[in-house]
Design a protein around this nucleic acid. Structure first.
Length: 184
DNA sequence: AAGGAGGCCAACCGCAGAGTC
DNA sequence: AGACTCTGCGGTTGGCCTCCT
């Protein structure tokens, strides 16, 4: 898979990453840490990639502990619940998902979950029934398992979130928890 | 078996926010 | 205070894969 390889005006390589480039990036980050992405093309010998591209590759693919592959029904349900609270804030949602990247979650939402909710008569953006009833009956059917939550539309979806996350979700929804830029 | 359609996923682009000068 | 730089995020695209006809 991946895109064709090409070079931009600054001579930076674009497109699919090779195993060799991956190794160079991993070696560089192991040695210097994740500081100053912009300087990577200058300091990492033989890696002609812009800092942005390096960061994306590291965070979405090379970072240790990343979970790849199919989403479990539990994960899908959690994403739906988090999305109901946080909206399209994929980075925030990813922080509550174990070892899943925002890109992964976003891709799965756009390609799969959104359609499933629509098929079940749920507006994927508002998480309310498309027929606009006062009572929400949401049935998540995925990979042989299902769960149903029923309640008035005015009630926060946090109430049905797994124990422990509801409080944080409420804080996030209220904006009291802010993502902070990590110092180098 | 072949071709088309849709699914899936890696990667790019543009913008917004935070930090620095 | 304002301009500039850098990073992070969300939206979108491109291309391979898989399934269906």
């Amino acid at each position: 898979m991946g895109r064709k390889t090409w070079f931009d005006d600054d001579g930076m390589k674009k497109g699919e990453w090779t195993a060799e480039e991956d190794e160079k990036l991993i070696a560089y980050i192991n040695e210097h840490g994740m500081c100053d992405w912009r300087s990577i093309p200058k300091r990492a010998v033989g890696l002609r990639r812009c800092g942005k591209s390096c960061r994306l590759r590291w965070l979405n693919y090379l970072r240790p502990g990343i979970k790849r592959g199919k989403f479990t029904p539990q994960e899908e349900e959690k994403i739906i619940k988090l999305h109901a609270v946080l909206g399209n804030r994929w980075a925030s949602i990813a922080k509550h998902m174990e070892n899943r990247t925002d890109n992964d979650i976003k891709n799965h939402w756009n390609s799969c979950l959104k359609k499933k909710l629509s098929r079940n008569g749920i507006d994927p953006m508002t998480h309310e029934p498309i027929n606009n009833n006062l009572t929400v009956t949401t049935t998540y059917v995925e990979c042989g398992s299902s769960s149903t939550t029923t309640g008035p539309t005015t009630e926060s979806h946090c109430s049905s979130a797994p124990s422990g996350s509801a409080c944080l979700l409420n804080k996030l929804a209220a904006g009291s928890v802010k993502s902070l830029r990590r110092p180098c």
